[in-house]
């Protein structure tokens, strides 16, 4: 009985410990630096936009998008999320994606394009993961809206 109680308590702790935390602003600009500051971020955003344009899975969602504005807002957003000296002047993620009814698969397709873009810019896996970790909490405001 003691053994079973201990196992249950252990499992409960593991599950609670796994719960994600709400996104807070980064404490330092180390990720911003690792991405190559604004110039590096801009290269990633440009590479991402080219990949999206070639991605038959999701390109159609951007048919009516002002790409120049999207590029500018993504540059700001990645900068802010990386702890850089920027301000995000775009609309909220929920507002921007309302009515698109984007799926999980759409979202992941963009993640794959972003990873490919960061690979092409030769960013280390550890830096890629840290940016993805900053962006991942946005998914709930983006899909099925």
């Amino acid at each position: 009985m003691y053994r079973e109680l201990r196992a249950t308590a252990c499992a409960a702790l593991v599950l609670i410990g796994m719960a994600g935390c709400a996104s807070q602003p980064p404490e330092s600009d180390s990720l911003y630096q690792a991405l190559g500051e604004q110039a590096g971020i801009n290269r990633v955003v440009e590479a991402l936009l080219y990949r999206i344009a070639d991605d038959v899975r999701i390109a159609h969602h951007f048919a009516d998008t002002d790409i120049a504005r999207l590029q500018e807002k993504l540059q700001e957003q990645f900068c802010v999320e990386a702890g850089g000296p920027c301000e995000y002047t775009g609309d909220s993620m929920a507002d921007v994606h309302a009515g698109f009814d984007l799926t999980e698969a759409d979202f992941n397709a963009l993640v794959e394009d972003l990873i490919a873009a960061m690979e092409a810019e030769r960013l280390p896996v550890t830096v890629q993961n840290r940016l993805l970790q900053r962006l991942a909490p946005m998914r709930a405001d983006i899909i099925y809206r």
């Binding site: 599950l15 796994m18 994600g20 280390p124 896996v125 830096v127 840290r130 970790q133 991942a136």
Partner: peptide, 11 residues
């Protein structure tokens, strides 16, 4: 229960 922690161990 399973969880992937992004960038959790040295990135």
């Amino acid at each position: 229960g399973s969880r992937l922690f992004l960038g959790a161990v040295g990135g």
